[in-house]
Amino acid sequence: EPLWIRPDAPSRCTWQLGRPASESPHHHTAPAKSPKILPDILKKIGDTPMVRINKIGKKFGLKCELLAKCEFFNAGGSVKDRISLRMIEDAERDGTLKPGDTIIEPTSGNTGIGLALAAAVRGYRCIIVMPEKMSSEKVDVLRALGAEIVRTPTNARFDSPESHVGVAWRLKNEIPNSHILDQYRNASNPLAHYDTTADEILQQCDGKLDMLVASVGTGGTITGIARKLKEKCPGCRIIGVDPEGSILAEPEELNQTEQTTYEVEGIGYDFIPTVLDRTVVDKWFKSNDEEAFTFARMLIAQEGLLCGGSAGSTVAVAVKAAQELQEGQRCVVILPDSVRNYMTKFLSDRWMLQKGFLKEEDLTEKKPWWWHLRVQELGLSAPLTVLPTITCGHTIEILREKGFDQAPVVDEAGVILGMVTLGNMLSSLLAGKVQPSDQVGKVIYKQFKQIRLTDTLGRLSHILEMDHFALVVHEQIQYHSTGKSSQRQMVFGVVTAIDLLNFVAAQERDQK
């Protein structure tokens, strides 16, 4: 057995438009009618409502009807409940999964919650491996369901041993009777949507819809739904939504950006999952974080739909894509998950301010006199920076000697690579993860907040409520011999709460 199987392995699926269902090699399930009293909570997966979006479509000038398939009504709160249950049931049916076995899954959280929910009911041990950027709410729900959680670096490539995929496979090879159901490759993922989600949409719309818009992560949702719609409703256009920084969209030119990270969760990847059939997507749109969270908040405030950030991405694209539809036509959007997962993220004004998705003037509360002053007023001194090749031991000596707790790590040209902190280095040394002679590049981390000289002290204040420091950066445009230009970030300084307090105190003292 291989040590790991690539999540982007070539698909062996034989589905073709027009091929009889009787030739399918898979076990198919028909939607079942729910009894009045459910035998367990797993029976509350599927049969989610279709809700008309009344205000947002009109606000953006849509002539067509805009409908939302509300997947956050599933038992675990997301569309991923469907595939989690289906993968477990299919693994039980073919004898792969037996009582007492362990389920391991690399996930952005929602599939993990679905699997942990099913594992709690069915009696399996469950280990979820997820990147650090995923919300604390997801972690809390997983723990409450009895799952064990392993976190991995957000910026690790999918084929790196440190990625959530790599760590999951390492655990599988170490733990007896453990299984990775593997949402990236498992046919049960798109089949769950082909058999149930798509049929529900067709039934709820009486077979009449002209466009379907869905955000894409593993691709199982859009693949399964689109294949069924292509068979039953061939005139329906399928629109895929991919965040900026991901590479799922086609044509490839759409993916060209210097951005590699994004805040919206559960969609987009740096590889093409095996289950994603991009041939059934008629057109791709890219979405960005700001519009995703703005539209998610709009869905909550104006439509009462308590959905997550990827739902915002989907609707932001839908109001663009559906401009081509006329009166009497219908566009369906998939709202994948609930706001429950993001209470401390985009639902929080403070978080939105820190990330730059909300401006101070958007909030009406009274601010102190210094709130709208610029960061450049602080008069920061030149920063202490270190090269990635310097040793951890030497870096600790320098920081202690100069009285700093942290320093930016830059390359020879001064471009920011990340940050090192005294606390992080000492804990890594004590844990045996690094040696004093190791290069400081081994303990770089990139989960820090950046701020510009033109940003306000109010925004800085919000950042420092949650973080010990902020890195002050400025952009530099560099022209190359080819005539092309590129933008790079340079370090201007490091600012802490002490710097802000000293500035405010000094100004008030001078005024007296």
Rank of each mutant, 00 (worst) to 15 (best):
T294C: 06
E258A: 03
V434K: 10
H468A: 05
G423R: 10
V332I: 11
Y445S: 12
V375E: 03
I498R: 02
V317D: 07
Q507V: 14
K283R: 04
Q354H: 11
A321G: 15
P273T: 13
W351F: 00
A505V: 15
P408N: 00
L471G: 09
S486P: 05
Q259S: 04
T257H: 05
L464K: 08
V333R: 04
Q329P: 03
A321W: 03
D277R: 03
L380G: 10
Q450W: 15
C307A: 06
T385E: 07
P273K: 06
Q329H: 08
M490I: 13
G304S: 03
T294L: 03
Q302D: 15
A470L: 15
L325Y: 02
S428D: 11
A382D: 03
Q487I: 15
L276S: 04
E324S: 10
A249C: 01
M419R: 08
S348N: 15
S287G: 15
I498H: 03
M298Q: 10
A382Q: 14
Q435M: 15
L460T: 08
D467Q: 10
V443S: 13
L363K: 10
P383R: 06
V409N: 00
K345E: 06
Q354S: 12
E475D: 13
S481G: 12
I498G: 13
G432N: 09
Q256R: 15
P273S: 01
L325A: 04
I477H: 10
R459Q: 14
T389D: 13
G266Q: 01
L305Y: 09
K286P: 01
D277F: 02
W370V: 10
I239F: 07
L254Q: 06
K355P: 01
E465V: 10
L501K: 04
F448L: 14
E401I: 11
Q511G: 12
V434S: 02
I272G: 05
D499W: 01
L380W: 07
A505I: 08
H372W: 15
E508Y: 12
S381D: 13
S338Q: 06
L363V: 11
K355T: 04
V415M: 06
T314Q: 12
S485F: 15
T260A: 06
E465T: 02
N502P: 12
L353E: 14
Q376S: 11
T389Y: 11
T389P: 13
T261R: 10
M425N: 07
K366E: 13
